[in-house]
Design a protein around this nucleic acid. Structure first.
Lengths: 111, 111
DNA sequence: TGCCTACATATAGGGAGTCTACATATAGAC
DNA sequence: GTCTATATGTAGACTCCCTATATGTAGGCA
């Protein structure tokens, strides 16, 4: 997967995997990989800063926990994050449909 | 349309609109707008440098023409550009399907 | 004891490409 | 004479994803 392609869609991806259950960064990376059938390998250098950015702008909150001797920062959606996710989802559908249409080869209507 | 979302998909868009008929930059911008039903307003500062880049790496060739007193640089696909377009198209389908799956809310299989 | 892998978080710096803003120029309408 | 559409182009900013690196714990294995 070309890394550049992800640009601008990372928020939606991140928000989406923690929609139903709060997760910590490492688990988010694994969830992304699992849900994409292995297609998405998002590096830690992408995910951690992105989560902090999302928290900074109010879409997430986080809290520390220690599990099995390891420190975890668990993120969960705020109301604003939930709203943002819905917006991102509909933006995605519009985007995908738009690009898909332009990319589709063949005859153009009244072209 | 969030500008960042286009990142990494611009090549495919550009290549796609000139697949069947060579066009100059300005016409490419109009074609993009038309084919997207008005959703894509790609600025000249994006398109011209991108076309030059695509030419530099061998996916396009260009030639100058003067029509109605105005100079146009018309771009057409090379063999490599045609091949690249096909690769980009299949990359797009994979990408769209992957993101769509991760973004889809609801029950997960064996989650 | 030491090494390796998995788990877990984080930051600095790089880089690629899109965007804003601006510069330039012709043609035609009003 | 001014405005809009046509037409191309560059400089510099900006975003943000990536690579590389740093730190530390836990557990398996030799």
């Amino acid at each position: 997967m070309n890394p550049d392609a992800l640009r601008g869609h990372m928020d939606a991806l991140l928000l989406s995997v923690i929609e139903d259950e709060p997760l910590h960064g490492y688990a988010i990376i694994e969830a992304l990989q699992e849900r994409s059938g292995g297609a998405l390998s998002v590096p830690t250098g992408t995910v951690y800063p992105a989560l902090r950015r999302l928290e900074r702008i109010g879409h997430l909150t986080s809290e520390w926990a220690t599990v099995g001797g390891r420190r975890r920062r668990t993120y969960r959606l705020t109301g604003s994050g939930r709203k943002h996710l819905e917006e991102e989802r509909s933006a995605w559908h519009e985007f995908a449909s738009t690009i898909g249409n332009v990319l589709r080869p063949g005859v153009r209507p009244a072209g």
